[in-house]
Design a protein around this nucleic acid. Sequence first.
DNA 1: AGGAAGATCTACT
DNA 2: GTAGATCTTCCTA
Length: 190
Amino acid sequence: MKLSREFYSRDTKKVAKELLGKVLIHETKEGTLKGKIVETEAYYGKGEDPASRAHKGKSNFCMPMFEEVGKAFVYMVHNNWLLNIVSHSKGKVGAVLIRALEPLEGIELMEKRRSVNNIRNLCRGPGRLTKALGINRSYNGVDLTGNDLFLEDSNEKFVIIKTKRIGISKGKSKLLRFYIKDNTFVSSGR
DNA sequence: AGGAAGATCTACT
DNA sequence: GTAGATCTTCCTA
């Protein structure tokens, strides 16, 4: 079952946690790509989170974070597109960064796009998974309740680990990174 | 025009 | 596992 708009209109941290285990699906001309979300991070807005792209306030760049929830927010860092899902309770600002996926379907296509044959390395990392799924700038603002790129529910049970976020230079002490315990596809901290 | 950025790759100890 | 170079956009001056 596809996740509804209501799912995303709650506290960012809560959504980040509940997105674990959900399945990200991308319908492309070349085939269907599916991956289970195994690692996420929550990012808040102005004044709340110095590591967030939105902490300085509104700009063209991070616009989607201020707009309707349930949309994709894609941006480039260090030659990598990063996929975020806009999620926050009413009147707030925030998004969930998808950091890692466990490939489920369309693996051959992902391998072709990434030029790697090691499944474990296919989607283990925010920049890698966007490349594997073929996500780029044109997906910025895409509605995730649509039929192109969306998320599906799952009933899987697992243990969630909460840690500090990775790779950022500010706001390091916040425990806003979540991942599935013992999952091989989680990026191993750096 | 310059610099920073939520990272990745490759090559080593 | 850790380290360093390098990558492309957007923001700020």
